[in-house]
């Protein structure tokens, strides 16, 4: 089912740019290992996740929490994320542009990369295996509400859904709705509510009760 006011936003197109030699070799090796049944993307994800903590959702969560707590920061972030992230030295990983899209009570955003797996990994860490799966990449566009429901996010019919198609040039970060009951919270406490999935748009941030536990 697709409500007619949902729409897909991909005006930036998706130009292909050649991978570096090392990127190409890594992709070649992984694709061959998967074909031969010697590895699965999920198993590789799991190992990386076990080791990798330096770059992770923490960086993105900090940005979201600050936007919730600081109105001026929020405005600048929505207006020119590259400049703001540059000041925080959070943009130096790749030549990429980041656009932050803000959820409101009447509009929700979900991010996908329909052609491959473009992802704001400097902010969110390594993309989860499902983000790269052909099923997610197709269904996030054709039936975003069904996909979100599978993640436990059921939107009211009146809420408009915008699907953002990431590309090598521009990557999207969802600024989720601030949970109710968090008035006066510090950025540090707020950041604990911000999950990776909520910044992709497939779920909501944690509720205050969940973080208190």
């Amino acid at each position: 089912m697709s409500l007619d006011h949902d729409h897909v936003h991909a005006e930036h197109g998706h130009p292909w740019s050649p991978p570096s030699e090392l990127e190409a070799r890594v992709r070649a090796l992984e694709s061959l290992l998967i074909e031969k049944g010697r590895a699965t993307p999920e198993a590789i994800d799991a190992i990386i996740g076990k080791y990798e903590t330096e770059i992770g959702p923490l960086l993105g969560a900090g940005v979201v929490a600050r936007a919730w707590a600081d109105e001026e920061f929020r405005r600048r972030l929505l207006d020119d994320a590259d400049a703001v992230l540059g000041e925080l030295e959070l943009s130096g990983f790749e030549a990429e542009h980041v656009k932050v899209v803000e959820c409101t009570p009447s509009e929700h955003h979900i991010v996908v990369c329909t052609l491959c797996s473009c992802y704001p990994w400097a902010l969110l860490g390594l993309p989860p295996g499902w983000y790269k799966s052909p099923a997610y990449r197709a269904r996030a566009v054709s039936e975003p509400r069904a996909v979100m429901a599978e993640f436990g996010l059921v939107l009211e019919d009146g809420v408009r859904v915008t699907v953002w198609d990431s590309s090598a040039d521009i990557r999207y970060l969802v600024l989720p709705l601030r949970p109710e009951g968090t008035e006066g919270w510090s950025e540090e406490r707020l950041a604990e509510l911000v999950t990776r999935d909520s910044m992709i748009g497939v779920s909501r941030p944690l509720e205050p009760e969940a973080a208190a536990a």
Binding site: S20, V26, I44, E52, E54
Partner: peptide, 28 residues
Amino acid sequence: RSNGEPVFSAPWQSRAFGMAMALSEQGA
């Protein structure tokens, strides 16, 4: 490493890392 944790400065580095670890674990 940084603070004792492995660091990757690009996704391809972490994929290369993960593949080697996964294949070794499964006995390749």
